[in-house]
Design a protein around this nucleic acid. Structure first.
Lengths: 168, 168
DNA sequence: TTGTCTGCAAACACTTTGCACTTTT
DNA sequence: AAAAGTGCAAAGTGTTTGCAGACAA
């Protein structure tokens, strides 16, 4: 009984590629399938790690041909991809971080406040707790986000020697 | 086996008032107990809800006498109070929101994306899950934060009629 | 052709910082 | 008196927006 990770649309159809899924989303909204949006979805789909807008922008600018999109367009498209259920957004250290949410199982994170690394994990027990809690408060849960902050194995060792600045 | 809510200092001494606790914190750091810092701790301590910097600033400006502190000082002091273990900070809808963390039990939140309300709850099971997960990843957990987003009972009813703008 | 999208530059909200002056210690 | 704190104004961040030209449908 996992909490549905897709709540902005009826159901998840994993048969579609992210690109197709996005196209479908755009069409049903009267939005256009532009070159920029295609380039962005493709680029994002080919990199399965967590990233922020600036990293995506930098990545796009390194692609061979002029596969570029301006900063505003990147931001606008990221928002659309979140709406489309392709990406999931979370705020860490003051900036938005995105991760794939299409065809990926629900999961949560361990966040290292020193190196900013994100480690994923999933727990069925957690999902059950969320359901139970929401029910107790006549609350309609759409999603949940658990972030356990602390130090990863690496940073626990290198701790004292390096100057660090924890960012929430 | 609750996760200690105080991790920046050795132990919680609930015998002290927030004001005293803050004074103690400042002294041990060679910092000074200024009028502004006193005014801010007192004001914050007398309002037990969640708030952000701007609300606090507005609140201070409404106090009878010239119990004022500038915006920069408010921000600086909030940071200190977090370090002192008096407040807990979280980021919602783009701005930092603070809640009391001194003498308050560990808890998490249900966040209504429509009216921005925060409902608190606590779960021992959740704490156990966090411990377990952290252990599995050689991770040293300092704290955790679970936010279940969705619609509160009220907003579930008034849903369609009001124009809403969900903010993560 | 029509209406959406893009990119640019400017605007934004929230938060932080440089610095001369004020205060606590 | 010495050191830290304050307030002001200005600078930052990360992100959003107005608008004229560019482009899907």
């Amino acid at each position: 009984m996992a909490i549905a990770s897709d709540f902005s649309l009826g159901k998840v159809d994993v048969a579609l590629t992210p690109r197709e899924r996005f196209a479908e989303f755009l069409q049903t909204r009267g939005k256009r399938i532009t070159r920029q949006r295609q380039v962005i979805v493709d680029h994002v789909s080919s990199h399965h790690e967590h990233f922020d807008a600036e990293q995506l922008l930098a990545g796009l600018r390194q692609t061979p041909e002029g596969a570029k999109a301006s900063r505003p367009t990147v931001y606008r498209t990221l928002t659309e991809m979140v709406d489309a259920g392709l990406l999931r957004k979370m705020v860490l250290g003051g900036r938005a971080v995105y991760e794939h949410d299409y065809g990926y199982p629900q999961h949560d994170h361990l966040h290292c406040t020193s190196c900013q690394q994100l480690i994923e994990f999933s727990s069925d027990d957690l999902a059950r707790i969320c359901d139970a809690v929401a029910g107790q408060h006549q609350f309609r849960a759409r999603s949940h986000r658990l972030i356990i902050s602390g130090l990863c194995a690496d940073c626990r060792s290198n701790r004292s020697k390096s100057r660090h600045q924890d960012r929430v």
